[in-house]
Simulated assay, not measured.
Amino acid sequence: MQNDLKVAIIQSDLVWENPEQNRINFTNKLTAILEPVDLIVLPELFTTGFSMTAQHLAETMTGDTVSWMQRLAKQKKAAITGSVIIVENGSYYNRLLFVFPNGTIEHYDKKHTFTLAGEHNVFTAGKNSVTIDYKGWKIKPLICYDLRFPVWSRNTEDYDLLLYVANWPKVRVSAWDTLLKARAIENMSYCVGVNRVGLDGNSYEYSGHSGVYDVLGERIDQLIDDSEGIDIVTLNKNQVTILREKLGFLYDKDSFTLE
Score class of each variant (00 low, 15 high):
residue 174 S to N: 12
residue 175 A to Q: 11
residue 38 D to P: 03
residue 70 Q to T: 08
residue 62 T to P: 01
residue 68 W to E: 02
residue 117 A to H: 04
residue 199 L to W: 14
residue 239 Q to I: 09
residue 9 I to L: 15
residue 30 L to E: 05
residue 251 Y to E: 14
residue 95 R to G: 02
residue 21 Q to F: 06
residue 193 G to N: 04
residue 135 K to Y: 10
residue 4 D to E: 15
residue 60 T to H: 04
residue 204 Y to G: 01
residue 257 T to F: 11
residue 173 V to R: 02
residue 105 I to S: 03
residue 258 L to I: 11
residue 29 K to E: 06
residue 55 Q to L: 09
residue 120 H to A: 14
residue 5 L to H: 03
residue 167 N to K: 01
residue 68 W to A: 03
residue 97 L to G: 00
residue 195 N to G: 03
residue 95 R to T: 14
residue 23 R to T: 05
residue 63 G to M: 06
residue 255 S to P: 00
residue 143 I to S: 00
residue 241 T to R: 12
residue 207 S to T: 09
residue 241 T to L: 14
residue 254 D to G: 05
residue 230 I to F: 03
residue 229 G to L: 06
residue 118 G to F: 06
residue 227 S to V: 09
residue 98 F to A: 05
residue 40 I to C: 04
residue 113 T to G: 00
residue 20 E to S: 13
residue 191 C to S: 11
residue 76 K to W: 11
residue 120 H to I: 11
residue 172 R to V: 12
residue 81 T to C: 11
residue 170 K to N: 10
residue 244 R to P: 01
residue 88 E to N: 14
residue 87 V to G: 00
residue 46 F to C: 03
residue 179 L to V: 03
residue 24 I to D: 08
residue 243 L to Q: 12
residue 168 W to R: 01
residue 28 N to Y: 10
residue 46 F to I: 04
residue 61 M to N: 09
residue 187 N to D: 08
residue 95 R to K: 15
residue 25 N to G: 05
residue 73 A to C: 08
residue 40 I to Y: 00
residue 204 Y to F: 12
residue 160 D to T: 10
residue 123 F to G: 00
residue 190 Y to T: 00
residue 116 L to A: 09
residue 28 N to K: 15
residue 169 P to I: 13
residue 88 E to V: 02
residue 63 G to N: 05
residue 188 M to D: 03
residue 158 D to K: 14
residue 197 V to F: 07
residue 188 M to G: 00
residue 58 A to N: 02
residue 241 T to M: 08
residue 61 M to D: 07
residue 64 D to V: 07
residue 157 E to N: 10
residue 56 H to V: 03
residue 61 M to R: 13
residue 207 S to I: 04
residue 184 A to N: 07
residue 207 S to P: 00
residue 170 K to Q: 14
residue 110 K to R: 11
residue 99 V to S: 02
residue 183 R to D: 12
residue 103 G to I: 11
residue 208 G to C: 05
residue 131 T to L: 10
residue 101 P to T: 09
residue 224 I to T: 15
residue 100 F to C: 06
residue 102 N to I: 08
residue 231 D to K: 06
residue 46 F to W: 15
residue 94 N to H: 06
residue 38 D to I: 05
residue 73 A to G: 07
residue 65 T to L: 06
residue 24 I to C: 05
residue 19 P to F: 01
residue 207 S to Y: 12
residue 109 D to C: 10
residue 88 E to G: 03
residue 197 V to W: 04
residue 78 A to T: 06
residue 239 Q to H: 13
residue 246 K to L: 13
